[in-house]
Design a protein around this nucleic acid. Structure first.
Lengths: 122, 122
DNA sequence: CTAAACCTTTACGTTGACGTGAAGGTCAAG
DNA sequence: CTTGACCTTCACGTCAACGTAAAGGTTTAG
């Protein structure tokens, strides 16, 4: 598939896909015309990239992880133990982040709770 | 208290506190010398600011919320219903964000699971 | 054949929450 | 009275993941 089609399928833009390639996250084949050619597995890969990006991982961290998900679905064992350490660090960061988000949501909930009660006639 | 002390208490920097003021989040008094003077309640306020910032709210959104937490602890009912709508929107954003983080953490967990099992002798 | 709709590379622009000097006042201790 | 540790206001720098525009090649439908 071509770049625009992959972008549609994965819910992103051609520019983002070129950026991912520049960062070493994707390695599309090239047609004689110079056009990039992606196989269908790339859809899952791109979705993983977006998910991990939205979780706060940067492209270099994702670049280390992606080889362990070669077809966008299967999960292989990480090669080096250093990667495992890095994974643990990122996992901890995510957990901390979730806790903070939950705490912030609690603050908003208290405000929302206090809100509609104003002038409550019941 | 002065700006450096507040920064220490709240775990941030003087620069950040000046930035918060610039964005209308803090309104410290001024001494004759021109020095900023913060009351102790500011510690709680700053902590709230940091929490909401880390949850992805921007300074203008926080500026609308802060008046409902005047002393850094008490929670008042929001004045206008538009603010309540905005709060609901932010709350939804946070929940979505939490879900994505949890999904990303699951991916990492699967990798970590697959990792130590390699060469497992048990 | 030609025009639309793709694609390519190159390269500068954007965003928000600060970091990091620079140049200069203020204040307590010795 | 001076030195060091504060403080002040500019004002430019940073960072990552793209957005956006420019200048040009490719492909395909009519």
């Amino acid at each position: 598939m071509r770049i625009s089609e992959l972008a549609r399928e994965a819910g992103t833009t051609p520019r983002a896909l070129r950026y991912y390639e520049e960062q070493g996250l994707l390695r599309p084949a090239r047609l004689a015309s110079g056009y990039r050619h992606y196989d269908p597995q790339a859809v899952g890969t791109v979705r993983h990239i977006q998910l991990l990006l939205s979780a706060g991982l940067n492209t270099s961290a994702i670049a280390e992880i992606l080889p362990c998900i070669p077809d966008g679905v299967t999960v292989l064992a990480p090669t080096c133990p250093e990667l495992l350490d890095a994974l643990a660090v990122e996992r901890a960061r995510i957990t901390t982040s979730i806790d903070r988000l939950a705490a912030a949501r609690d603050v908003l909930d208290r405000l929302i709770q206090a809100g509609p009660a104003a002038g409550d006639q019941s």
